[in-house]
């Protein structure tokens, strides 16, 4: 059994305990192991003074009910108090790229949940919003917003980058105050620590090596 990875890892820190819950396994398996550990192998935890517990669930997608159930199991034991539960899964990227052809003109809005490729121009006054990344195989002269639901890893690439405004997640940037644009090169915009940067497309693999690897 030692080869099997623990689904529930309990670590002691200065102000209490951290429960690290596996993010990939079946939810019921997780609950079973949590109950088992609390009731059998780690029973010594249950006696003694009050201990604060921080729960880390990483990227598991959980409903409020799921979270309550875990808090309930831990709280059942009396002296364990759930101080925090962090669960902010990174939105799962939708697989596949939506391809749109045509010019997005002034006053037109294109929205998509996922990644999008535009075969055409985005004109001044036109808007494209995607929850994922945006690739414009033409001139980007309008307003592009990638990662509209808060995905800071999203990028905006364009063959001809002359935007009115770029937004990634909550960061708004407009040229040329914040970055320079070069001529005749395909470029992409991305976020580093909340600041928008622009680079040549050839740098993509260094900046976002994992964006499209599953």
């Amino acid at each position: 059994m030692s080869a099997v990875k623990d689904l529930v890892t309990i670590k002691g820190v200065k102000d209490g305990l951290i429960f690290i819950l596996d993010e990939h396994c079946d939810y019921e398996d997780l609950i079973r192991e949590l109950e088992y550990k609390l009731e059998n192998s780690h029973q010594r935890l249950l006696s003694g003074a009050e201990i604060k517990v921080h729960i880390r669930t990483s990227n598991r997608i959980m409903s409020d009910k799921d979270k309550e159930r875990i808090c309930g199991i831990i709280g059942r034991s009396g002296n364990l108090i759930v101080a925090s539960i962090d669960n902010e899964p990174v939105r799962k990227r939708k697989s596949g790229l939506k391809v749109h052809t045509g010019v997005v003109r002034s006053g037109q809005i294109l929205e998509h949940d996922g990644d999008m490729m535009l075969l055409g121009d985005l004109n001044p006054g036109g808007i494209i919003r995607t929850s994922g990344s945006l690739f414009v195989m033409g001139a980007l002269r309008g307003m592009a917003h990638a990662g509209k639901d808060g995905d800071t890893m999203a990028v905006i690439a364009a063959s001809y980058m002359r935007p009115t405004q770029l937004r990634i997640a909550d960061v708004v940037s407009r040229p040329p105050d914040e970055w320079d644009i070069s001529d005749a090169q395909m470029e992409f915009a991305y976020l580093v620590d909340g600041v928008m940067k622009i680079d040549r497309i050839s740098q993509f693999c260094h900046v976002r090596p994992d964006l499209f690897s599953s």
Partner: peptide, 12 residues
């Protein structure tokens, strides 16, 4: 030009 672009969109 901006308004013409808008109009072209509406015409299409």
């Amino acid at each position: 030009v901006r308004d013409a672009d808008r109009i072209i969109g509406l015409l299409e």
